[in-house]
Design a protein around this nucleic acid. Sequence first.
DNA 1: AGCAATTCCAACTGATTGGTTGCAAAGGTT
DNA 2: AACCTTTGCAACCAATCAGTTGGAATTGCT
Lengths: 202, 202
Amino acid sequence: MAWDTERTKRLLLDAATAEFSEHGLAGGRIDRIAAAAGVNKERIYQYFGKKDDLFAAVLGAQLRDSMDAVAMDGEGPEAAADYAGRLFDHHLLDGVIPRLVFWEGLERAELAVADQARAEYHHTKVERFRQMLPGLDHAGAGELLLTLVSLVNAWPVLSHLDTLMVGSPDRGEERVAARRAVLVRTIEVLARDAQERAAASA
Amino acid sequence: MAWDTERTKRLLLDAATAEFSEHGLAGGRIDRIAAAAGVNKERIYQYFGKKDDLFAAVLGAQLRDSMDAVAMDGEGPEAAADYAGRLFDHHLLDGVIPRLVFWEGLERAELAVADQARAEYHHTKVERFRQMLPGLDHAGAGELLLTLVSLVNAWPVLSHLDTLMVGSPDRGEERVAARRAVLVRTIEVLARDAQERAAASA
DNA sequence: AGCAATTCCAACTGATTGGTTGCAAAGGTT
DNA sequence: AACCTTTGCAACCAATCAGTTGGAATTGCT
């Protein structure tokens, strides 16, 4: 089974993704990652370097995947709202990205800001989002996209608040669908308002 | 200086608040807390029990404080938006609560859901919020308040995304004021929309 | 003064962790 | 077969950490 280094790397990256998503950077255990991947510990250091670098690799891969998987097309508030709904669905599949994003914000924010590739990634995303909402400038699109991303990512992480505030202990499909609808409506309303205000001040 | 046990407890709680806010539960160090408080380690176990219990005490105290400090009064979308703005200001003072809330969501969600006192706290808050927006039912108020809380708390934690997406590396006062305005406007628009929809379906 | 509770000091335990190293086995290449 | 790379195995190191314990000093109360 040797000689397939790509497979080894992928096994490690998958295991690391699950581990860091669950326990974060400080709480994530290298030994658990190696064991879950069925691969030996030293491979990690050989392929990814130190723990922190592995975390960065995990997050980078996830962001790349999500950018590919959730398309930004169409135009107008409904299209933006639809994008929010599809992003919500994609993040819900495993719930990995939202957790990773907040782990990063809490444990690694400074390093993320210094990452050139990340800056390009987000800048590109804002620009694409702006093209969906004619009339908005870059800053306006950024604000709304930040709101969108915050809401979509926060919900899986703050599921305990959802339970405590809206009160659905079971977290069944109905609750997911209900919150999804709220979110889609939220973005549609905000996008429309933003476009109207932009048009009015022009 | 002994004999003042309340002071000792408060010193420990303050130090623990800073420590857990910064590093979370897994990353927080008992030794650092004791050192920062200028108090000995064993006091922690004597007064608060294990690390996990201390974290719960920290968060409970912060939530109680914030409930007292940020009033929910007035009526209508503007009042709700004003509340969002004041909550934003209060959370920005130290940035402690947002981080604690997300640490909890990531590291302790199950325990929080099982906490009876927390359930009451949030239920009360939703009810008060509902009184600000006549026409909404409990679920509708809960959804909007969850949106509000998510946005207000996510921003300080996702400051790296703010920097990367809106692009204000310095994070000066202007940026804070700008985001605050977006947030206030967001809640006002959403509250108005929610009320209109509630009235229409009545 | 005598007593009880509070606190500090300092060492200790038992366990875990990130990261490293040396060596042998196994697969692929020439 | 000779050679190189990948991988597994297992032990190891130095550091760290949550939580405990015993004893001595300090303080307030009676």
